[in-house]
Amino acid sequence: MQTNSITKFRWDPTYSSEAVELTAENRSTYLSEDTYLFRTVIADTKFDGGLHYWELIADSRTENELKIGVTKNREFDLKTSFSDYSFGWAFYGIGQLRHCDGANGPQYGKQFKRTGCLGVLLDMDKGTLSFALDGEYLGIAFEDEELKKGPIYPAIALLHIAGSTLVTGKPAPPVFFTSQ
């Protein structure tokens, strides 16, 4: 089993679309607006190497799926999704992946919207990004040499009416290591 460092961060109000409400010491996000545009929020901590794990707990008020993952860039229009660009990788809660494309991506995992806990594991030594939903390992979503090079920031993109609560400071569950 790999060594498992403890990752702690919060969402950064400086790198958050102004339409997104941050609460609970910048751990909870919520968006409620009439438009149907993704709004990105980026973490206050960068990763330059190693293993990093965090979770997102679904908000029961959510009507539209989230995009959850990482970005290598914080300087872009936060009124768009980070994963629409070459510097972003995301699991889209409709059960697809997104990278360099806002509308298309391969099937992956299961739907994640109003209920559940989504675990995210970034392994910068291997250049992989993996997810687990309610303790079920979904597999490696992305394997990319760019995921070995920092800085990399956790990110989330919300659409119309959506939210989640961030949980950090926990080791990655064994399912991420025994299922590979």
Rank of each mutant, 00 (worst) to 15 (best):
Q2V: 11
Q2H: 10
Q2W: 05
T3C: 03
S5G: 12
S5D: 09
S5T: 05
S5A: 13
I6Q: 08
T7N: 05
K8P: 00
K8F: 08
K8G: 07
R10M: 09
R10C: 13
W11G: 09
W11P: 01
W11N: 04
D12F: 05
D12S: 13
T14A: 15
T14P: 00
T14R: 14
S16K: 01
S16E: 05
A19C: 10
A19L: 14
E21Y: 10
E21M: 11
T23W: 04
N26I: 10
N26F: 11
S28K: 06
S28M: 01
Y30W: 13
S32W: 10
E33G: 10
E33K: 14
D34V: 13
D34H: 14
T35N: 14
Y36I: 08
Y36K: 11
Y36E: 15
L37P: 02
L37F: 12
F38D: 07
F38K: 03
R39G: 09
T40Q: 00
T40K: 00
V41R: 02
V41T: 13
V41N: 00
V41F: 00
I42L: 08
D44H: 04
D44L: 09
D44P: 07
K46Q: 15
F47D: 01
F47Y: 14
D48L: 13
G49Y: 00
G50V: 04
Y53H: 01
E55P: 03
L56P: 00
I57A: 12
I57N: 11
A58Q: 03
D59H: 12
S60A: 15
S60V: 08
T62L: 10
E63P: 03
E63N: 14
E63S: 08
E63I: 09
N64E: 15
E65Y: 15
I68V: 15
I68T: 09
G69N: 05
G69K: 00
V70E: 04
V70R: 01
T71W: 02
T71H: 03
K72N: 13
N73G: 07
N73E: 12
N73Y: 01
R74Y: 02
R74G: 06
F76H: 04
L78W: 02
T80V: 06
T80K: 08
S81R: 01
S81V: 05
F82C: 08
S83N: 07
S83A: 15
Y85S: 08
Y85K: 08
Y85W: 10
S86E: 14
S86Q: 13
F87V: 03
F87H: 10
F87M: 03
F87E: 09
G88F: 03
G88W: 02
W89T: 06
A90Q: 06
A90G: 05
A90N: 02
Y92E: 13
Y92H: 15
I94H: 08
I94R: 10
I94D: 11
G95N: 06
G95P: 06
R98T: 06
C100I: 07
D101P: 01
D101A: 07
G102L: 04
